[in-house]
C-alpha cells in the first residue's frame, strides 16, 4: 500500500484517500504553440522504471493537490512537496540522491544519458 504524507494537512494518507494525477511538471501548450508541442503536452508521458515525479490529490481529505517523488519499482517514497512549483525542490533531489547516488534529474527530464533507475 502506497502511503504519502500530504504536505497541506500533514497526515500520512494511504492510497485509498488519494487520487492519482499523473506525471508532474508538464509544460502547458498554449495559443501559438505548434502541433508537436500540443502532442507532447497532451499525450507524451514518461514511464520510468525507478525515480518518478507525480501529482496526487488528497481527495478523501483536505482536497489539495500536491507532488510526490517515488520509485516505481520499489514504491519507496522520497518525499512529497507543494503543488506551487514547476520543478522538484532541492531537498527532494537531495533525498533521492541519498538513496540513488547515480540518479540525476536530467535522466528523468529526458535530457540525460540513459534510463532513470
Amino acid at each position: 500500500m502506497l502511503i504519502l504524507n500530504c504536505p497541506y494537512c500533514g497526515v500520512s494518507a494511504d492510497e485509498t484517500e488519494l487520487t492519482a494525477g499523473g506525471e508532474a511538471h508538464l509544460t502547458l501548450a498554449t495559443v501559438g504553440d505548434d502541433d508537436a508541442a500540443f502532442e507532447a503536452y497532451l499525450f507524451m508521458r514518461k514511464n520510468p522504471r525507478g525515480v518518478h515525479f507525480e501529482r496526487w490529490r488528497h481527495a478523501n481529505g483536505c482536497g489539495k493537490w500536491f507532488h510526490a517523488a517515488r520509485c516505481t519499482m520499489t514504491l519507496e517514497v522520497f518525499g512529497t512537496y507543494s503543488a506551487q512549483t514547476s520543478e522538484p525542490p532541492q531537498e527532494i533531489i537531495d533525498s533521492i540522491k541519498a538513496r540513488r547516488p547515480d540518479w540525476a534529474l536530467s535522466d528523468w527530464m529526458g535530457t540525460g544519458k540513459g534510463d532513470a533507475v
Binding site: 497526515v11 484517500e17 478523501n60 481529505g61 483536505c62 482536497g63
Partner: peptide, 10 residues
C-alpha cells in the same frame, strides 16, 4: 479532526 473516508464515502 481528520478528514478521510468512511468506507466508501468522504
Amino acid at each position: 479532526i481528520r478528514r478521510s473516508r468512511l468506507a466508501q464515502v468522504p
